[in-house]
Design a protein around this nucleic acid. Structure first.
Lengths: 211, 211
DNA sequence: GCCTGTGAATCCATTCACAGCT
DNA sequence: AGCTGTGAATGGATTCACAGGC
């Protein structure tokens, strides 16, 4: 893997984007796809698709296209989405519950192995046969013991920074933050913030521009 | 507003990003902020912040910084986030419920004025005193009558395309799609797809690269 | 002294266009 | 004939560095 050299960040993001259409194609039994078709499914330029892939090797057949199954495997390998990642989630309000129950995470290899909340009435709640809500105060030891690699924060904003610090203390290396606060980025951790309203703001701006 | 000229797309996305830290600052009673501080809160370059804002005018004071309240107002105006937008949501599973109950949308002016689902047991469900779940088959007339501007799709993937088409038919101009499918982009509509696993894939890639 | 506003320089990223393979 | 792989060209976006104002 990796033809070495610098891989543009934008390329990685797009490759993650290609995954879903490829899965859909595979489900539909389509075995070969051209850069042109894949590109149009993702609203990008065909040359872009080819170039993105070319950073990692030559996976297509000239005159034909790409084998869907191969390409899916390759892209998953690139993204290290070909193994299971162990995730912990803190905050089991509506959003947290929605994420835990979202079967897509598991399908892509992201497995929730621990769940934490500070509300007494949520502690002990059985989310799956092997996933029970634990008190937030158990986060550090549990995350260490269970070798959690990804921390997902869906607490309310007032708790988010503390939770982030706890994840960092427990050696968690990456955090996905859904709470409405800008996290102080711990030195040791990758943090990605998700803010839905950003997407709506974007749409609103572009809608307004059109008139 | 708008010094005219071409505004980079990336600038719009970042301005949407500045909103949240600015709100937090305002809540904390901080009245002045430098591009340096705001930049570090958003993990961008200070010159970037200044340049982004400069596309729209001169809002800062040399030697001092930006007035937080003013800047918040200005950025909201730029994003057209200074008025209410009328949103409809289809699909009230976990994710849909989480979004409806997420108070941040309303705080930013995105108001759910209608909700739709195909499950009989969810129809009639009262989400707020003025928001009751309606059958999916009522989507087109209701969306038209209520002048819905933004459509949010949280149905399962098998229904998403049909829902998208209905929104388009009803004259909805922008769609935010949370379902795990690539929507055929209707000519008349802006569509933004949200896929959480893309963020996790990104983190996974970067985590792996570090060793 | 400090921080903004912005041309100029740099750094990327995207797209073109065509050679190369099937 | 058709579609990939990729240097070269283009087009943006980011950052620098400093003039300008408080």
């Amino acid at each position: 893997m990796v033809k070495d050299n610098k891989i543009p960040d934008a390329t990685i993001e797009r490759i993650a984007l290609y995954l879903r259409p490829l899965e859909n194609l595979l489900d539909k039994g389509i075995t070969v796809i051209s850069s042109e078709k894949l590109a149009s499914m993702c609203s990008v330029n065909p040359a872009q698709v080819r170039k993105d892939l070319s950073y990692f090797g030559e996976f297509g057949v000239r005159g034909v296209g790409y084998d869907v199954r191969d390409l899916l495997q390759v892209t998953k390998k690139i993204l290290v989405s070909d193994r299971e990642w162990r995730a912990g989630i803190a905050g089991l309000g509506n959003m947290g519950m929605a994420l835990v129950r979202h079967e897509n995470f598991l399908k892509r290899g992201y497995r929730f192995v621990a769940a934490f909340d500070s509300e007494p009435q949520r502690i002990g709640l059985i989310l799956r046969n092997d996933l029970v809500v634990q008190p937030l105060s158990d986060l550090v030891p549990t995350a260490e013991r269970m070798k959690i690699e990804l921390g997902i924060i869906t607490t309310d904003p007032s708790q988010a920074q503390a939770v982030s610090d706890m994840f960092a203390e427990a050696g968690v290396k990456a955090i996905l933050n859904f709470s409405a606060i800008q996290l102080r980025q711990p030195e040791c951790c990758l943090v990605e913030n998700i803010d839905f309203t950003v997407h709506l703001d974007n749409l609103a701006y572009h809608l307004n521009k059109e008139d």
